[in-house]
């Protein structure tokens, strides 16, 4: 298990309580799970993602991530329409372990309400939350 100081927690993304991250790119949001989440789950062997075009509200499940240990829900950190999914994860789910903020991204979202990202935690707040776990 990674120690808190070993975690890769980039400053340019926002974090949700359920350990998803959101990165704002132009008018779209990219979503994945944090380094903490992938470390807790262990080897990720399967990722189930939504249909492109699906409209999901904040907090709704958009898929599942399956590790050797457990199957976990993935929750929308912001509401919106699914513009794209990371098809590479079907063949290479381990990308979520190795590059959680890069090639291991999960969905691209057209936000319904762009301001929803503002209520998510910044790196500092997320780190504080993790220290309390």
């Amino acid at each position: 298990m990674k120690e808190i100081h070993e975690l890769n927690l980039p400053e340019e993304v926002r974090y949700a309580e359920d350990h998803e991250w959101v990165r704002s790119e132009e008018s779209k949001f990219i979503v994945g799970i944090s380094d903490y989440a992938q470390d807790q789950l262990g080897d990720i062997v399967f990722v189930e993602l939504p249909e492109v075009g699906a409209a999901l509200s904040k907090g709704e499940a958009f898929g599942t991530v399956e590790s050797v240990k457990a199957v976990s829900e993935l929750y929308m950190p912001v509401g919106g329409t699914i513009l794209a999914i990371n098809g590479e994860l079907e063949e290479s789910p381990e990308l979520v372990n190795s590059q959680p903020y890069g090639q291991g991204w999960m969905i691209e979202v057209q936000p319904g309400e762009a301001k929803e990202i503002d209520v998510l935690m910044d790196q500092k707040a997320y780190l504080e939350m993790l220290k309390g776990l």
């Binding site: 298990m1 262990g42 050797v68």
Partner: peptide, 25 residues
């Protein structure tokens, strides 16, 4: 060794080490 630890019965036991459960299996 960086094991992910969890409670098993009365004991704290390693679930997997850095290599990951798949490589270990």
């Amino acid at each position: 060794q960086g094991a992910n630890m969890a409670r098993f019965g009365q004991y704290d036991m390693p679930l997997w080490y850095r290599a990951g459960a798949k490589s270990e299996h």
